[in-house]
């Protein structure tokens, strides 16, 4: 589904990724972890085609991402944006409807199928009780769910999340991660998420990819990737601080 091959990329005049290779198969659920500045977000930008690597290639569903136009990329991969500020009053359903942008008629807008997809996404993510409200008045947790509903409405086979739990309290963190897990197991959506919280990553993901200074230093099951000596080496903390879930 996603194939990153020997990618080196420069972001903000810094070599952010060095010779990174990674393959994610359809239906997989993968978390990317690593300290600040390890290149996690840069990797997502490269995969989404927003940043062109200086060497190496990225393939999305069998095609090189730099040869697809933006609309084609958007139909293969949806990204949950980090809670942006909206410039104008925008209702919850209007935000979710933005997910249909790559599918709707370019001039006339949403067709009946698009409206059905929006309604289904609202139902699937469970934000029906928020309909009619201005998205700017919602709590961070509610906003995150609405943005997730937007990405679900986009109906792409791959869902990418960049720190989806960052401003959320514990209950909302678990709620979002449960939902993401469910989208993976029940709908078969391929999930690729950048996570800061190692506990959440280990609990909800069977495969972790650990980045450090632009390189993949470990890729595999949580117990293996989060070995105590590696935590000490990469994160520079006492491994006792990282308690891996039950």
């Amino acid at each position: 589904m996603i194939r990153v091959d020997g990618v080196t990329a420069v972001y903000r005049e810094r070599a952010a990724l060095r010779d990174v290779s990674l393959q994610v198969d359809a239906g997989e659920r993968v978390a990317i972890i690593g300290p600040n500045g390890a290149g996690k977000s840069t990797l997502l930008r490269v995969i989404a085609g927003l940043l062109h690597p200086t060497t190496g290639t990225v393939e999305l569903g069998g095609d090189r991402v730099d040869r697809l136009d933006r609309m084609a990329v958007a139909r293969r991969l949806s990204v949950v944006p980090q809670t942006p500020l909206l410039p104008f009053a925008t209702t919850v359903e209007e935000v979710v409807a933005l997910g249909r942008l790559p599918h709707e008629h370019p001039i006339r807008g949403m067709r009946p199928g698009d409206r059905a997809a929006v309604a289904a996404a609202i139902e699937r993510v469970g934000v029906g009780h928020l309909l009619g409200r201005d998205a700017r008045e919602l709590s961070m947790g509610e906003r995150q769910l609405v943005l997730l509903a937007m990405a679900v409405a986009q109906a792409a086979p791959v869902l990418v999340l960049d720190e989806p739990t960052v401003h959320l309290d514990l209950r909302h963190q678990v709620e979002v991660m449960d939902l993401v897990g469910d989208l993976n197991t029940r709908d078969g959506t391929t999930i690729l998420a950048v996570l800061h919280d190692l506990g959440l990553a280990a609990h909800f993901f069977a495969r972790l990819v650990l980045l450090d200074r632009g390189r993949v230093v470990a890729d595999g099951a949580p117990a293996e990737v989060l070995a105590p000596e590696r935590i000490r080496e990469v994160f520079g903390v006492d491994p006792a601080f990282v308690r891996l879930g039950a």
């Binding site: 989404a48 933006r70 949806s78 944006p81 942006p84 997910g99 001039i107 807008g109 986009q154």
Partner: peptide, 21 residues
């Protein structure tokens, strides 16, 4: 180009992820 302007509601990165060049 109303569609592109709609995409920009959530910012330029989000617009790009929604298919806007």
């Amino acid at each position: 180009r109303a569609r592109s302007l709609n995409g920009m509601l959530l910012g330029e990165d989000a617009a790009a992820h929604l298919g806007v060049d």
